[in-house]
Each structure stands twice: as structure tokens, then as C-alpha cells.
């Protein structure tokens, strides 16, 4: 199983927290840099203040294990009554998931699929958004729930119900709000209904 082992290896090396910190670091850095292009200087005050805060905080969190003690406890330790396990803060050996979620056992997926259920859900949700943009949300919805149902091995009866429900939700919005979700921006741009 070449894919499986590669996937496991890759996932084991990725720590979601570093992805988050990386996103925040890049975003705050960009936002600070961009403020120097603003024509109106007062518009830059608040972005610099907040992005600066994010930047410093992110750097502290990235380098927390190298910090001297009083600062380390400020950055990493919990201030309230409920204490967080220390190994949760430094131990990054776990592949992506926290240890405390007991019901996520060692197998990657609860339905025996080769990738994590959460990863799949994230991917398909984004795919649904893109498909909705392309062909209209009303038509993308049943496709999305159908694929979801197949992946999670739901019974045909349940999948059928979900498809119907998703169409009803779309039609409800279409009717009640006059929302033009029967048309996409790439296909069916004239609308179907």
C-alpha cells in the first residue's frame, strides 16, 4: 500500500498548529507591510496595532520552547483553574490529532477510507463551494451530499433522503429570498429555473 504509507508519513510530519501559526504569521506580516502603501495614514493605525500583536504573539508561540522561564510560563501555561497537559504543548509526535479525543482511534478513518475523515470533509466542503460557484449552489448541493454519502458508506435510503433535503434547502432559499442559486458563474449562467 504505497499511498497509505506515504500518506501516513506525510501526515505524521505535519503539525496543524504550525500551519495555523504559519498562516497567521504570513497574513500579519503582509498586512503590516501593506499599510505602508496606504494613502491615508490614519487607516493604518488599527491594522498595524492588531497585525503587530498577532505577529509578536505568533513568534512567541513558535519559539516558546526556547523562551526563558518567566516568559515561557506566560506564553505557554494556562492561567485558569483547568490545567493543560504540558506534553500537549510541546509533544508534536502525534499525527495531526490530539490524544484526548478518545473516539478517534489509530485507524485513519471511521469508515475505512485511506485519508482522515476530517481531511476529506474539509476537501469536499471546499470542492462544494467551488462547484457551487461554477454551476450554482442549487445543483451543487445534491452532488455534494451524494458524494459525501458514498464516501461515508451511508445506506441508499439515507443518501436519497439527504439529496432530497439538500434540494429542498436550496429551493427554500431560492423561493423565500429570491436567491439566484440556480445559475453558476461558469456553467448555466442564464439560470435553469
Amino acid at each position: 500500500m504505497g499511498f497509505q504509507s506515504t500518506y501516513r508519513k506525510v501526515v505524521a510530519r505535519i503539525d496543524l498548529e504550525y500551519i495555523l501559526l504559519f498562516i497567521m504569521l504570513v497574513a500579519s506580516g503582509y498586512m503590516i507591510w501593506e499599510t505602508f502603501n496606504f494613502g491615508i495614514s490614519s487607516a493604518a493605525t488599527f491594522p498595524r496595532l492588531t497585525a503587530g500583536f498577532v505577529l509578536i504573539g505568533t513568534l512567541l508561540l513558535v519559539f516558546r520552547s526556547y523562551l526563558p522561564d518567566p516568559l515561557y510560563s506566560f506564553v505557554a501555561e494556562s492561567a485558569d483553574l483547568i490545567n493543560v497537559d504540558d506534553d500537549e504543548l510541546v509533544g508534536d509526535e502525534e499525527p495531526a490529532d490530539d490524544a484526548d479525543d478518545g473516539d478517534e482511534d489509530d485507524s485513519i478513518s471511521t469508515v475505512g477510507r485511506p485519508i482522515h475523515d476530517s481531511l476529506f470533509t474539509s476537501i469536499i466542503a471546499v470542492g462544494y463551494g467551488i462547484l457551487g460557484y461554477a454551476i450554482g449552489i442549487l445543483w451543487a448541493s445534491p452532488i455534494f451530499v451524494f458524494v459525501y454519502g458514498l464516501w461515508f458508506k451511508l445506506s441508499w435510503k439515507v443518501i436519497l433522503v439527504l439529496v432530497v433535503v439538500s434540494i429542498l434547502i436550496g429551493l427554500g432559499f431560492y423561493e423565500a429570498l429570491g436567491l439566484r442559486i440556480d445559475r453558476g458563474n461558469i456553467f448555466f449562467t442564464e439560470g435553469i429555473l
Binding site: M24, A27, S28, M31, I40, S42, A43, F46, P47, T50, A51, F53, V54, G57, T58, L60, L61, F74, V75, A76, E77, S78, A79, D80, I82, V84, L89
Partner: peptide, 26 residues
Amino acid sequence: QGSIVKGLVAGAFGLMLTTIGIAPNS
């Protein structure tokens, strides 16, 4: 619960994202 700095950074990150778009006073 958890680290105060994590909480503060999360809050500031939210604040930061609201600066997208036209400035409220200019």
C-alpha cells in the same frame, strides 16, 4: 482554558481580519 497568549493571538487575529475593506473613518 489554555494559554493566555493563544487566546490573545486568536482574538487579535479576528480583529486583524476586520481591517479588510474600507476603513471605518476614512
